[in-house]
Amino acid sequence: MDLWPVTIMRRTALLISCLVIHLGASDAAQAQRSAPPPVRSDQHVEAGGQPPPAGTLRNPFQGDQQAAEDGGKLFSAFNCDGCHAGGAAGAVGPSLADGRWRYGGTDGEIYHSIFYGRPRGMPAWGGTLPPEAIWRLVSYLKSIEPAKDTSATVTW
């Protein structure tokens, strides 16, 4: 787990235009770990079926409005809007604008969802997008204000 921030820091030099990256030597080290990170016993129900918690990842663009705007452009340029719709309101892919998250809504968890993909059709972008592009996408998604229509109660 602790290897990931190191890996990402090493890659921050990559430009967004350099899209194809390959997993480096540090990933081999990761693969050689004998056991995955532990799951806290008081959270073992909520953690069911989820990959290892990603809470230790830090978004280098936290609170950076320009990064969020850039992320909005990437959201369209990489066809994310083709599935999640403009404004991430949801189409064939789920809404990412309702303030609710199937795989967790911390910056690190959203990063994981984009990097590794998710089993019901979300592709893994870790081999295509450099980390800072993914972080910009995370920043964009976190910057969306949920519409009031997505509140728990609907009345007619």
Partner: peptide
């Protein structure tokens, strides 16, 4: 109409969508 009608989804608590502007009440 899963994509277009807005909030007719019933299988995912993390996917709440506003209704489509051209058919605001199909979920009713």
């Amino acid at each position: 109409w899963l994509l277009l009608s807005g909030d007719v989804r019933s299988d995912d608590p993390t996917d709440v969508r506003p209704p489509a502007s051209f058919m605001p009440d199909i979920a009713r």
